[in-house]
Design a protein around this nucleic acid. Sequence first.
DNA 1: GTGAAAGCGCTAACAC
DNA 2: GTGTTAGCGCTTTCAC
Lengths: 340, 340
Amino acid sequence: MAKITIKKIAHDLKLAVSTVSKALSDSHEIGTDTKQRVLDYANQMNYVRNAYASSLKNSRTGNIAVVIPEVADSFFALAINGIETIAQEKKSHVLIYLTQENQAKEKSIMEDFRNGRVDGILISVAGGNTSYPHIRDLQERNIPIVFFDRVAQGVTSPRVVTDDFESGYKATHHLLEKGCKRIDFLSLSGNLSIIDARLEGYKKAISDRGESASRSHVIVCTNDNVHNENILASLLERKENRPDGIIASVEKLTLITYTVCTRLGISIPDEMKVVGFTSLPSAALLQPSLTTITQPAFEIGQTAAKLLFELLEKKSKQSPNKMVLLPSLLHERGSTQIKT
Amino acid sequence: MAKITIKKIAHDLKLAVSTVSKALSDSHEIGTDTKQRVLDYANQMNYVRNAYASSLKNSRTGNIAVVIPEVADSFFALAINGIETIAQEKKSHVLIYLTQENQAKEKSIMEDFRNGRVDGILISVAGGNTSYPHIRDLQERNIPIVFFDRVAQGVTSPRVVTDDFESGYKATHHLLEKGCKRIDFLSLSGNLSIIDARLEGYKKAISDRGESASRSHVIVCTNDNVHNENILASLLERKENRPDGIIASVEKLTLITYTVCTRLGISIPDEMKVVGFTSLPSAALLQPSLTTITQPAFEIGQTAAKLLFELLEKKSKQSPNKMVLLPSLLHERGSTQIKT
DNA sequence: GTGAAAGCGCTAACAC
DNA sequence: GTGTTAGCGCTTTCAC
């Protein structure tokens, strides 16, 4: 099948390309009759405008980038879902990039955005970054960026986040209420906004309880799951001074906690209570069912995408430090139940 | 920051644009010295080639499309992961499209690929399609398409799949071995290749056992989870002639089975044994741990992507009905355990 | 209301 | 080895 272009339509209809172009964009300066003729013919020929040729003229590709650490995580999967609903509404296209929590990869990915690959960017940053030259660089080129969930600390750009401090507090408070004496916090290395905030909430809850904040025990996990399992196992194996409560600050750490407890024969919730930050649909079906802090992942994705399209549409640079905060929910389940 | 183009570099370096262009693509017909000068300057200026401008000349955008029913499913999430690793290797970019199991949406999405939006397509088709004009249309335009997992029946194009028939057989056989008397198969409406094959395997296992294949009980589920829960509940509520084994042919049906059993107080595996097709990392942690048929999702994604790039690179149209089959694994766990 | 022409950023003949 | 030029498909003044 021959490629069908505006030029071909013009030729076939004995019109000028400019006329066809205008007709296709429903310009008022084209007669209703010609317009209809063009539209009909284009339709009949299955014409689709070459988006990238247009982009050369008007610098709008109709593509947006979504940069995330991973996709096999319920939060990100749902967020993508949310983003996609809005993108489809806006007839826009979504490019996905996985950083695998690797800052170098994130950097190199974003360097590719410097010249018109995408119109705008939604990003949840990788851990390990301390400064964000690759993000600032794009900002200077006036490429709109919206953060969701994990924001680049110190960079000013619109963002959609959850109440991480409060959730950290809530989770900890909940465990304390359930009688935990030693609660450990499983964090993720790498200077992440969400982890920092959750951790602060945790510390605050501990100190509010009258315990010294220095009594808090933070286990720093990494991106290496085998390593994490080992750390956790050696923590839980010891017979004395073992935590009786754990807050897993991200999904994968939650699952590892369950795995290790199962392996070591540690009973949840009797010997160990667990709260996990996760949006897993199967949380209620785990053994035992998992008490979670659940973020409104879908809505976060939607909101972030909407924000981005606002930036894209009205070039009016709305307040660049706009922040939308969507609250998380504590779902109390079996993993924090008091022995009866 | 001003936009930096090949033209600007040429001007600054007092060279012709073509010289710069060739230098940047490391053409042999450019002197080593000038080449270096151009490369250095481009680097210093943070020059990035406008991919879409090039695409106008050589019809290669560097973008590929991945069209899937949903992303909040472990199989697809892992498959995307696999695809992405290959894409990054190939310096290619991945556009994600979710059809939500909606054929009309799939069609309209793919119509957008008719004019150079992407170089090639990876697709796992939505349910409900009986013919695939939108796919054939793209084929006629010589846009490479590779199917993975769910193929369009009757359409000839390279594909990466699992041994669905055998897995259906294995799952059923396993349940029969575990003493199940009535095994119900939870299928998904919509003429899906994978479901059909799994179902055939199921029927064969039943009839091999000497039971009439007509004794097989297929529960057709839809894309509406509330509806599915209701169907399942009314099936499981009845006191007589209730199945004692269930094969959930996709992930979400597995979780619904667990949910409904929990709600109705039906004990798995004592009163009901369950095998689920899923790649959920949490399968082993469910209550009870779930016996699964697990597809090598990551590898499927990788393999499909590799196939696509082969098509893209050597324009040599390799055998269009090439098929790669990667086997699934049966993981026996608690949900099919015999009462001790 | 319609058309001619220039140009977006880049590539590839083809000249020199 | 380097430059000139045409053109990819589209949009947008500016004439008519």
